[in-house]
């Protein structure tokens, strides 16, 4: 900071720098426009210009997709924990079972994989970043990282331990590589000591990371 700067705040500065000396967080426009961001903007503009959809429809779609959170997946899991018939249908045909709850599973068939005392499941997309957006919302950044994508398929027990999840020595680890047209969600084990909880109380125990399979659900 300049030593000439008069530290008298009674007048109107007419400037906007941060007196702490810390760099200002850049605004969206301060970052370089990437090639693909420019292409996405251009395609959206063209589709609107051609009347394929209008600006409000595009905005509403973005708003809807961004409103999706792992609470949707948690609702599905809690129902499966209290209703064994639903659980069987969920494992048999995830998309149809989810629709029973009035939820939109999205266009790709949902495949639900159940954790048991014998098997722990974990989801990855090694080729890109496929993720059950319709039930979990936007994926975490680590899910898209090269490190997670390459290592969880190569040394899943080590990666799970880094998430704080120690797999029992006699429990198998089953990795699901989401390479093509399915989307996956883990059905975590219902924690012990939750027998007296209601379905809505159970939903609060189910977090995003348990639905990806990097942790198990905890009782509180």
């Amino acid at each position: 900071m300049s030593t000439e700067h008069p530290h008298n705040h009674s007048h109107d500065h007419g400037h906007d720098h941060d007196h702490s000396g810390a760099p200002k967080q850049p605004d969206t426009e301060d970052r370089a426009l990437t090639y693909h961001a420019a292409m996405a903007d251009a395609v959206a503009d063209l589709l609107i210009a051609k009347g394929v959809f209008n600006a409000d429809e595009l905005r509403a779609k973005i708003e809807t997709m961004q409103s999706r959170t792992p609470a949707l997946g948690a609702k599905v899991v809690a129902r499966a924990w209290v209703d064994d018939g639903f659980k069987q249908r969920l494992i048999q045909d995830g998309s149809s079972a989810v629709a029973e709850l009035g939820l939109d599973p999205g266009p790709a068939p949902l495949t639900v994989v159940e954790n048991t005392a014998e098997t722990h499941n974990v989801i990855v997309c090694t080729l890109c970043s496929c993720y059950p957006v319709f039930l979990l919302g936007k994926s975490p950044d680590w899910y898209k990282s090269r490190e997670y994508r390459s290592r969880v398929v190569r040394e899943p027990r080590t990666v799970l331990a880094e998430f704080g999840t120690d797999i029992a020595e006699d429990q198998a680890v089953r990795v699901h590589d989401s390479t093509a047209d399915l989307r996956y969600m883990v059905l975590p084990c219902r924690p012990e000591g939750t027998e007296n909880l209601s379905e809505s109380e159970l939903t609060t125990l189910v977090t995003r990371d348990s639905l990806i399979g990097v942790i198990e659900c905890k009782s509180e």
Binding site: D170, A172, V173, R174, V175, D177, S178, T179, D181, L182
Partner: peptide
């Protein structure tokens, strides 16, 4: 484990 697997589409 020998039982550890990867399922791929």
């Amino acid at each position: 484990l020998d039982a550890d697997t990867v399922d791929i589409e």
